[in-house]
Structure formats: C-alpha cells, structure tokens
C-alpha cells in the first residue's frame, strides 16, 4: 500500500468495524444531539448513522477525512430524522442541574442550562445554517471540511456560518437582560 492509496484500496484493518465505531461514536453522538436529535432517540439515530457508515464504507473514496465524511452522514441522517418527526421536541439533558438551586430560573445559567438554551436557539435556525454552525462552532472542523461534509462550496459555507452566527448571537443577546445569559 502507498500513502496515496484511496481509502477503498486500503487493507481490511483500516476498515475495522470496531475501530471505526469506537473512534467516531463520541462525536457522532455529540453532533447528533446538537443537530436536534432528542435524547430519547439519539441511540437509535446513532445506530442509523453507523449502519449507513458501514454500508457505504466501501464507497468512501478518501477525498476527505473519514471523520468529515461521517459528519456529512450525521447531518443528512439528522435532517431525515427531523423531517420524520418535525414536531418532536428535543429533550435537553439527562444531567441533573449543577450547583445550588436557590437561584431563580432567570439567574445565572449553569453550564448544562446554557447548553439547554443553546439547543433551543439552534432549533430556531434552518437546517443549512444549523449544520454549519454545529460543525464549525461545536465540532470545530475547519471551514474547508465543513464545506466538504455538507457538499457545498466553501463560500456558501462561509455565508451560512455568518448568517447562523448572527442569528445565534441575536437570540443569545435577547436572553441577556438581567444577566441570565451573562
């Protein structure tokens, strides 16, 4: 094998099911949650993503990183999910609230409450902007990989990110009076 060999020419160990699963599960799980998959459904949708990944792994051409390719599958699977269950609300977290409970609900948000609010803000974005925002701001992919994952021109990805950030910041600012979002 040569280092330039496309992924489909790689020997079997490179496509080891267990390795692909374990290395990618954390970010698949995280991305799906922020892409709007309810906590109660995330296990099933993770399964759906990995079934697609394993089924199509032979078609993966190595033009992008495997991770980027899987992110693309996550985005499309999450989009399909939302179309199937457009009204399904997102269960925010299983975690107990952090810290003391003497604050009112509009006082300083804990980390998990801030994430809860972020999820609600993300639910206000359209699919394209949400995907760019999640991949860049949370998954921290470079923009060229974001564009690859979403199969769109780089400039389009930048435009979507700009619009998404503007909207997210607007919504976050709206929550700021009284220090709730500070």
């Amino acid at each position: 094998m040569t280092t330039a060999a496309p992924a489909h020419d790689l020997p079997r160990p490179a496509l080891d099911v267990g390795t692909v699963f374990r290395e990618n599960l954390p970010f698949v799980f995280r991305a799906l949650r922020r892409l709007g998959i309810a906590e109660s459904d995330v296990d099933d949708v993770c399964q759906e993503v990995f079934v697609v990944v394993m089924r199509k792994l032979g078609e993966f051409e190595g033009r992008s990183q495997l991770r980027t390719w899987i992110y693309g599958i996550c985005v499309r699977t999450a989009s399909d999910y939302r179309k199937r269950a457009p009204r399904r609300r997102e269960v925010i977290t299983d975690e107990p609230p952090e810290g003391v409970v003497s604050h009112g609900p509009l006082d300083h948000a804990t980390a998990s409450q801030a994430r809860d609010i972020l999820d609600r803000i993300l639910s206000r974005l359209d699919d394209d902007k949400r995907a760019v925002f999640v991949l860049y701001e949370i998954e921290e992919l470079p923009m060229n990989e974001v564009a690859q994952a979403l199969e769109c021109p780089l400039q389009t990805a930048y435009s979507r990110l700009h619009a998404a950030r503007k909207r997210v910041e607007e919504l976050a600012r709206e929550l700021d009076p009284g220090g709730y979002a500070s």
Partner: peptide, 13 residues
C-alpha cells in the same frame, strides 16, 4: 453565555 454553552455542548459526549 455562548462560551459557556459551547463548552458545555462540546463536552456532551
């Protein structure tokens, strides 16, 4: 707020 929310989102694995 966004820093806190994004940090929390990033750690949600």
């Amino acid at each position: 707020f966004l820093k806190k929310a994004l940090e929390s989102a990033r750690s949600d694995v």
